[in-house]
Simulated assay, not measured.
Amino acid sequence: MTETWTAAFRSAPVSPYEPTPLVYPSRGFDDQTLRQVVRVRGGGDRLRVRLSNLYGKEPLTIARTRCALHTTGSAIAPGTDALVTFGGATEVNVNAGHEAISDPVDLATTTEVDLVISTYHATPCEPATYHPFALQTGYLATGDVTSHPEIPHPEQVEPRFHLTGIDVQTPPGRRVVAAFGDSLTDGVGTTPGANLRYTDHLARRVVAADLSLINLGIAGNRLLTNVFGESGTARFDRDVLAAPGVTHLIVQLGLNDICLPAMQGAPPLSADELIDGYIAIAERARHHGLTTVIATITPFSGAEAISPGFDNPENEELRQRINQWIRTSGEFNAVADLDQALCDPATPAALAPAYDSGDHIHPNDAGAQAVAAAIADALPA
């Protein structure tokens, strides 16, 4: 039986030149090894690595790349370290605006496993195409230590740099759920390094149905506006449709379109504009045969004290209008009512205290688990 490539991990890329300041800015590297840990889902006998220079202004050169299974900290599992090549070469040059996909690597993965990708940057490179909120510590050291069993006294880094994907080789028919969203999908509010995002919980729930899951969340992302990454409508084809094996889609976007404009002194969007954006994604997904779930927009009452301009009566009215459309439009195959799953019954415009990470916007670990349960119940087979 001919095997095929399937997306097993994704990290949606963001420009290092974002006009809006981010909590974790990007950076460049020079004579340094970067070791990054990622959770791969969906087992296979071989894998391939994706490195991106999508938002670079100059060509990117990576002198050496290796991969291995992870143990703890910066350590790799003995006997699993493997060299990664690109077109048979150890060094890879990635032109600005492009991505490099490695040759197949003979490293087997299981249904859920942590993988270490180590890259050596021998010459200076500009700020990297990256993912600001990795929620998984990376490790940085001087020189080429890509093959070291453990990096001694590394610098710890919070974002994920250049690494945008891992594919695994599997028999035909592997099905993949693409979780497409903002900071809630990205996992902001959950415990870093613990794999307790809603997508982590959901991946473990759907594995019995022979589904795996990739996380395409970007903190701060919007449906319609290119702020904190390209908009959902702009990046949909690149991030979702181009990922091999995707059969199911979860759309969780819109809260930032409602609330961030007032924080930044911009005019608010209308309900019709947002609805048109959702319909555009639904139509693209239908055209490509994806089974779709859309999530209602979650409560944010109380966020004003921490994020001025985020929470006001106009924003809440718009949230209610959009949620009513989501529940009744029929544009998507199913609705996951995260509003109902997370709200405080005594104050429905607010997150339930047991699910609030503390900023009145993002669910905590328990809230992420509740989100996963609501989506799992809605997700068609």
Rank of each mutant, 00 (worst) to 15 (best):
L54W: 04
R175I: 08
G44N: 06
R160I: 09
Q264G: 14
D365F: 09
A370F: 02
N195W: 13
H98M: 13
A372E: 09
I361P: 00
R284P: 05
P172T: 10
R50V: 12
P171Y: 09
G220W: 02
F161H: 12
D30A: 13
A194Q: 14
A234W: 02
T65R: 06
M263Y: 00
L290A: 03
T291Q: 11
A178C: 13
T185H: 07
H201D: 10
A303Q: 00
R222H: 14
R204M: 13
V371T: 12
Y355S: 01
W325N: 06
G358W: 02
V227F: 15
T33R: 01
T80L: 05
H248W: 11
P299V: 02
G232L: 03
G220N: 13
L196F: 14
I281K: 01
V371Q: 13
A262E: 06
I62V: 15
A271E: 13
S329H: 05
T85K: 03
F332L: 09
T4Y: 08
T292R: 02
V168A: 13
L213R: 04
L211W: 04
L51M: 05
G138K: 02
T110R: 15
A262P: 09
P19S: 07
A373G: 12
D103C: 08
H362A: 03
L47D: 06
R204A: 14
A219C: 13
Y278A: 02
G265N: 08
C125F: 06
T292H: 01
A209N: 14
R64Q: 14
A341F: 01
Q32R: 10
I322G: 02
L83W: 06
L47Q: 02
V168Q: 11
R41N: 08
G232D: 06
L115W: 08
C125L: 12
V145E: 15
S270T: 15
